[in-house]
């Protein structure tokens, strides 16, 4: 039997500096990448549980990001999410007033301005013809927005008429 023994290869519990520290960080990067790939594999094989997600926190981060994105935005598309007669609801930008004579929001159909703005809601719903209005702060998935109620120039459905609807701040 050969004489047993064990060599720790110079490792100790003392703090490391210089070249040893560089070797440590290189190992950290290499092993870290390997463990990251292994984690993906283990998740695919369902050998590790799904990571815990703090939904309220995640939602508030998403909301903040959305607010940051919308505040100060000067133009954008209007995505319709509800309909009421000839009126269609979409989410507009934040940080604008809906006061008549002060509001700077304009709605466009294929780049052509619609109007009149600040129309009574009942007229938008019943007469349409390009009338629109916007007002207030509303919440969607904890994200605030200005509600834009608009109609198309020929009272067709903006979700299927093939035209684009946008807003811009004058």
């Amino acid at each position: 039997m050969s004489e047993p023994g064990f060599d720790t290869e110079g490792f100790s519990t003392k703090p490391v500096h210089g070249l040893e520290l560089i070797k440590d960080w290189a190992a950290f990067a290499g092993v870290g990448a390997y463990l990251g790939a292994t984690y993906g594999y283990l998740r695919l094989r369902r050998k590790l549980p799904a990571p815990p997600v703090n939904l309220p926190k995640l939602t508030s981060w998403v909301a903040l990001a959305e607010v940051a994105k919308r505040v100060g935005r000067r133009e954008g598309r209007l995505e319709v999410y509800a309909a009421e007669g000839h009126a269609y609801h979409a989410r507009g930008p934040l940080g604008i007033t809906d006061k008549e004579g002060v509001s700077r929001l304009q709605v466009f159909e294929d780049g052509r301005p619609l109007g009149p703005g600040h129309a009574p809601h009942q007229e938008v719903r019943e007469l349409g013809g390009g009338r629109y209005s916007h007002w207030g702060w509303h919440l969607h998935l904890a994200t605030p927005y200005t509600l834009v109620m608009f109609s198309t120039s020929d009272n067709s459905d903006p979700r299927s008429n093939g035209r684009s609807y946008t807003y811009a701040l004058a």
């Binding site: 290869e9 490792f11 070797k23 960080w25 290189a26 190992a27 950290f28 092993v31 870290g32």
Partner: peptide
Amino acid sequence: KTLFYRFCRRF
């Protein structure tokens, strides 16, 4: 093991 020990030390 020495590579993994280095990783643990930094991690």
